[in-house]
Amino acid sequence: MAAEPSIDALGQFRLAPALGMVGGSVNFTTANEMMVLGAVLVLALLYYGMKPKAVVPGRLQAMAEMSYQFIYNMCVDQIGHEGKGFFPFIFTLFFFVLMCNLLGLFPYFFTYTSHIAITAALAIMVIVLVTGVALATHGMKFFTYFFPDGAPKLLAPLIIPVEIISYLSRPVSLSIRLFANMVAGHVMFEVFASFMFMLVGALGAFGYIAAVGPLAINVILVGFELLVAFLQAYVFAILTCIYLHDAVHLH
């Protein structure tokens, strides 16, 4: 086993200080760099997209309007009338995650959602908000959420722990889903890219021809990862909407 070249699949997720000496001294890492870049890109899209204020939108304006409309519809469809109040939060969340997922697909760019610390922070923020909203809207009645109406009283010792566990596992599944998707996708890139070097190393000149196979798979994977990047941001946002719906309407 030692003779074969080993695949350092997780090395790409190691954090490195950015911006030279200054960044190193304040712990400004590549992850922070990407976060700032993602935020700037979203703000630039909205600012320059909405600047012309044309009745017939151009390309950039159409994109800004479509993204606005997309999230707005999602909020209103999922949460209901109250969803309008949560629109800015969902919009920010969706685009923060989406930008990161998309930026991470560029070579040499760092995917910050591939760190559980960041996805867990987002998920905990969501769950604290959801619980806060539920407590603010319903007060102590919120705790009836853990025991649905009409369920037999005899089943209470069974239902209540199960409901509490499912409520508490929400941030866990929310954060791990996003993080696992990103990690698995990037590890797959790394593994197939390593196969190319292994083939060249093992077969010599013929290896260069054989290496076209893994390269083609990687090209297809990039397309698939583009879909996953969007899908995971969508799922993160829509699950937040569903949780907020539960918080506002209690079942």
């Binding site: 695949i7 350092d8 699949a9 997780l10 599944s173 791990i176 889903r177 696992a180 998707n181 990690v183 698995a184 590890v187 899908l231 995971q232 969508y234 799922v235 829509i238």
Partner: peptide, 23 residues
Amino acid sequence: ILGFALTEAVALFALLIAFLILF
């Protein structure tokens, strides 16, 4: 698509465990 993403997440949990074991 939502159902697909939720189901696919289970696959990724398994895949992640495999990656952790390997790497």
